[in-house]
Amino acid sequence: MNTNGPTYHEIDKGLQKAMNRRANAGYRRFLAPAMIIIAALTVVPILFTVGLSMTNISYVSPRPTRFIGFDNFIQLFRDERFLSSLWQSAILIFGPVAFQLIFGFFLALVMNERLKGLGWLRVIFIVPMFFPPIVMGLMWKVLFTPQLGGINYYLSLIGITGPTWLSEPMTAMIAIIIAATWGWTPFVAIMFFTSMQTFPRDLYEAARIDGATWTQQIKFVTLPLLKETALVVLVFRIMEALAIFPIIFVMTSGGPAGSTETVNYYSFVSGFTFLKVGYASAMILTFLALLVMLLAPATNLLLRSIETEGGSK
């Protein structure tokens, strides 16, 4: 049986490759220029940042710029402000993302159940998706400012004395989490809703015939089917969670006393206020590396989502 020649399977694979190559021949030159431009705009700057991170480049220091190896990275882990910004980043990433997933799920359910008279809600729900983040920040800054925003007045109606939100570390953090939840829950809801629309109806029918109640159908049909989408959404949201930069910028500027400063915010301050560009580069790269390590196990998942969402036909 086992001859030295290629097996049928190998020939088939080789043939497939050759056919792909022939079919692809005319189309590579459409993709190639775009990929080169994209790489020039992204990969090159990232590599340049790696270079910057190993120098002491600074726009205020009179010293000449020179190569200092990993000194910036070593210094980072002795920098208390960096370490606390890491911790605050974790809170400001996972806090809002958790709320977004929970509320997003229930919003998707509301949309999916086609409740009578609530069709217009679908339009309202997505409004924050188009909001400029800077306006979100300003809006919530107004709302949380005593006198100017109504939040404390309405809290006082139910007997709660509102804090001076943005000037205390704890409540400033909560205010930002609320703003971020408001802004990015619609994205999660829409992703969940779109996914729910593709679930086969007969699965629910079968569950119903087996005597499953509505809650059981959600628990044993909807939730398991939604797991993959939820993971993809989670990856997206974690990766993009610190896009709340503009919100922090206008609401607290990282304060009070640096208590709402995230890593990207601290990197921004180091780079553009203290003008220590080398140090800021090392900081943001470290953060990127941490994110990648956290999310690397999900790469396969993203690949699979490409097959479905990107249309593999």
């Binding site: 700057p45 940042t49 910057l52 480049i57 780079g271 553009f272 560009v277 580069s281 943001i284």
Partner: peptide
């Protein structure tokens, strides 16, 4: 590429 935080690109472009 799109998922990389914007801050990563900001420093090299500024320089």
């Amino acid at each position: 590429i799109r998922m990389v935080p914007g801050m990563v690109y900001l420093l090299p472009y500024f320089v």
